[in-house]
Amino acid sequence: METKKTVWLRAFFLKMLVTCSRCDQWPSPTDIKKSESDTLQTVLSLLQQHIIDQDVKMKNLAEELSAVKKMLSQCDVTTSSSKTIEPMDTLNSTKPEKGGDMTVPSSTSTSSTTTVTPSTTKAPRIIGSRGSEFLILFMMNHPFAHGNLTIYLTSIDETTVKILTSPHLNTNIKLVNNFTSSFTLTLPRDIVCEYLTVEPKGLILQTSELSTVTIFDRFYTSSNDGTLIIPTQKLSNKYIISSTDPNRYSQFAIGALYNRTTVEITFKFKANTPLTIQGKSYSDGDNFTVILERFETLQIAHTTEPL
């Protein structure tokens, strides 16, 4: 297809020929050369302007493409997985209890099981720290701590909350509850992680509406450590852990959201003081690998230097 500029150029030459054919006398060779020169100069200017216009268009397209890529990278992408946790619409037949606060007593559970089914519900857009699913664990605070362990939930809309635990956990914490605005759940201290031990002490909390979850670990009456829990939709599989010279322990903990989760840790020790895990000694630069099942936790602690 001819562009407007191409058509204009063709019309320009045609007009020049028609004008010459009407002249009483043909122009001299000098005039012809000058006319050709002027015409070519005009064509060159048009082509140069055309190139500049195309370059501007390309730059604009590149900027638009960059903006689209940036917007796309900020979007939350939800993918289907065979490891999807059962959706909220598969809640058990137990009728939810109304209320805002609940305390779970210590007890034993021997035969409870959790069924994992694929999710068909479209996941809501996650904004900030709000979400609909959270992986929770309580790290060892102090060997003699005996304060409360508390989960505090807030939501704008009326919400159904469900807590799932491992069938191997000795404490029965499974519950379904409805709440409006806020809900507080107090847990027994025997779900606190032990040092350097694989245990089924992780909790998975699901909500029917977007919610914010904060946990508190009270040590005696003098302190109350709080942690804002990140939704599972925003978790990653690679982390850099920082620490300082410890007064007692330098530590971190890991929880598994899925079965057969392979965890690889590369240790960085300041003074290369060995750390013994499961009967094996690890030094600076060594790699530790462990496979965790869903709900299993592992807390790593070092008593002499930063990890």
Rank of each mutant, 00 (worst) to 15 (best):
V43Y: 09
K280I: 08
Q74W: 03
Q41L: 13
Y152G: 03
M140W: 10
E305W: 01
Y239D: 04
I240L: 07
N177E: 14
N172D: 13
A301G: 09
K70F: 12
T232R: 02
F267P: 03
C193W: 05
T212D: 14
S250E: 05
T42R: 08
I300R: 00
L9H: 06
K234W: 03
T273P: 02
D286H: 05
F13H: 13
N170E: 10
H50R: 13
S35W: 04
Q48R: 09
E209Q: 05
S28Q: 03
D286F: 09
E293Y: 01
L175I: 03
I85Q: 01
P27F: 08
T227C: 10
T150D: 05
S37A: 09
N272P: 13
P306H: 11
A145Q: 06
C20D: 12
P274F: 06
V104E: 03
I265S: 12
I32T: 11
P143A: 14
P274E: 05
E133L: 09
I173H: 01
P143E: 08
S93D: 06
S66T: 15
A145R: 05
K4I: 04
S93K: 14
L14E: 11
I230F: 05
T207F: 06
L65V: 08
I215S: 12
P274C: 02
L175P: 02
K59Q: 14
S73F: 00
V104K: 04
L164Q: 15
S181V: 14
P231C: 11
S35K: 15
S236H: 10
E63A: 13
P246C: 07
G285S: 04
N148Q: 11
Q41D: 10
C20K: 13
G279M: 11
T266Y: 07
Y282S: 00
R10F: 03
I163D: 10
S208W: 02
A271R: 02
E296G: 01
K15V: 11
N287A: 05
T150P: 01
I32Q: 13
T232H: 06
N272D: 15
L46P: 02
N272A: 03
L47V: 15
H50S: 14
T186A: 15
S35D: 15
M16I: 13
N148H: 11
I126N: 02
S66F: 14
I230C: 10
T159L: 05
H302D: 10
H146W: 06
N272L: 06
F252V: 11
D225S: 09
T197F: 05
T221G: 11
G99R: 07
S242A: 00
S81L: 12
K268R: 14
E63K: 15
G147L: 00
K234G: 02
T108W: 03
G279A: 06
T304E: 09
L187M: 05
I215F: 06
S21R: 08
I300G: 01
P124R: 00
P96S: 00
T212F: 09
V192G: 03
I300L: 10
K122C: 10
K57L: 14
S119P: 07
P27I: 13
V104W: 04
T115P: 09
T197D: 05
L187V: 02
G99D: 07
S243P: 15
L47M: 09
T171P: 00
A256D: 03
W8S: 11
L65K: 15
S243N: 13
M140C: 08
D284H: 02
V104C: 03
V7W: 09
